[in-house]
Design a protein around this nucleic acid. Sequence first.
DNA 1: AAGTGTTGCAACCGCAAGGCG
DNA 2: TCGCCTTGCGGTTGCAACACT
Length: 310
Amino acid sequence: MMGEMKKGPWKAEEDEVLINHVKKYGPKDWSSIRSKGLLRRTGKSCRLRWVNKLRPDLKNGVKFSAEEERTVIELQAEFGNKWARIATYLPGRTDNDVKNFWSSRQKRLARILQTPQAPKSHKTDREGPVIHDVPTVKASKLSSLTKEETSPINLFCSPSFTVHNLKPISAVPFPEPELNSNMCYFEQNLLQPELDIMETKSWQDHRQQIPLSFQAKHPQLQTEVPLASESQELIPQLGEPNFFEVFENGSDSGGNNPHLQYVSSYGTEGSCGNDGWKENDNPVTPDSFIHDFPIDMFDHLDMLPSPPEW
DNA sequence: AAGTGTTGCAACCGCAAGGCG
DNA sequence: TCGCCTTGCGGTTGCAACACT
């Protein structure tokens, strides 16, 4: 009879035994490692160690790239918490990696939402990406239309990993804006219903409302909104497929946006035909959308300079 | 330098599915 | 068909490392 099962961190010697076993027999027969008396670990533990740490093709100690983050976000919106499935799209990443990444991200968002004005955590310094460090990017979908035909709206959205995720179903393609660090563009037509509803709002009301209508009605102004750091971290999430999950306790894992249903490029959502967003039958009004934010969230928004100053 | 809070990661646990006798 | 065993997956936890006061 074997002694007690060993738990806890693996030692280098144990790793070596495990690796040798896999070399001989392949990544299987995990239980035989114990039955042969090679290790006092369960087969389950051995398998986990191999899959998560010892496999030769792993990106151990390498942070998720922006591209990987984008992929996870898209796939989580599509598959839900199917980490193993998502991991198959990310070479060198395990389901555990993806799961931990997502968990950290959710915690970060939750913290930001709960304490938008709290003293900045020291940890934020080693969290990325910081908006102003994000390189300039271009919208992926280009158009021959002029800006006058499809006046872009500057919305508060991070270009760091959301731009190409946003694939509005609108038939009018994107113009070709260059996105700087604090802004990205949405197709105006997609937002027009919201813009009409919010039409009466102004920058003076910015504590409660995002004055999209101002920009929509004056697209030529191309307003740019400087954001405080915490809001810079939060507001980018507006563009993410699963953004609404942040606000919804116990919402379904599919990341359904109450207004727009995301259909990713990985394509299991068939009703839309093309990649992108489709309209929900019961959209949430912009007001209810905005009211889900902490009341003081927009305190970080600075007043726009008046046009003559531009 | 010590204390404290936060984060990321490694590993465990429980459950379910599948294979096999 | 049933029960056992193995494997795989998702959720959770514990802890070391780090940053700040």
